[in-house]
């Protein structure tokens, strides 16, 4: 499997971040990985990257419940972002509230909704899905 070039994890749960990081590295799913502990930090970095013409991540794993700017609020900001088509977003949450899943379907910029725990198979499939989606566009 061809690894992704650049992936972001936006989540305030240190343990979740640790596990995903570990699995992606071990299985060589991405060359580069960056971590943001809330939506605001991620949004600010996107704006900075645009200005400085830095590389965008190909994929963002986005949590819902986070301080300052939560996943939904990040998505509201992201939908206004000029280069949003270059980035694929997976919403990742431990929520099994059906309202959260149906809400994610309202956001056309969300590629898929993944329920925690996230296994290595989930991550591989996600990389697959992201790459075929990128090839189409």
């Amino acid at each position: 499997m061809k690894p992704l070039n650049y992936t972001w994890i936006v989540d305030d749960d240190d343990i979740f971040v640790f596990t995903v990081q570990k699995m992606m590295r071990k299985n060589k799913l991405t060359h580069k990985l960056d971590i943001f502990s809330n939506g605001m930090d991620a949004k600010l970095q996107l704006d900075k990257s645009k200005q400085a013409k830095l590389a965008y991540p190909e994929v963002i794993l986005l949590d819902i419940n986070m301080p300052i700017l939560d996943g939904w609020q990040f998505m509201d900001a992201f939908s206004q972002f000029d280069d949003k088509d270059k980035i694929i977003i997976f919403m990742v949450s431990s929520s099994i509230d059906p309202k959260d899943r149906s809400r994610s379907e309202f956001y056309e910029d969300i590629e898929d909704f993944i329920v925690k725990p996230v296994t290595i198979e989930d991550l591989k499939q996600m990389v697959d899905q992201a790459q075929s989606s990128m090839n189409i566009s």
Binding site: T19, S93, S95, I96, K99, K116, P117
Partner: peptide
């Protein structure tokens, strides 16, 4: 939903760890 969310987030961490 809060209960399920919060307990699930810990249990899924356990599982993966």
């Amino acid at each position: 939903h809060i209960v399920s969310h919060n307990l699930r987030s810990h249990s899924s961490n356990f599982e993966v760890l």
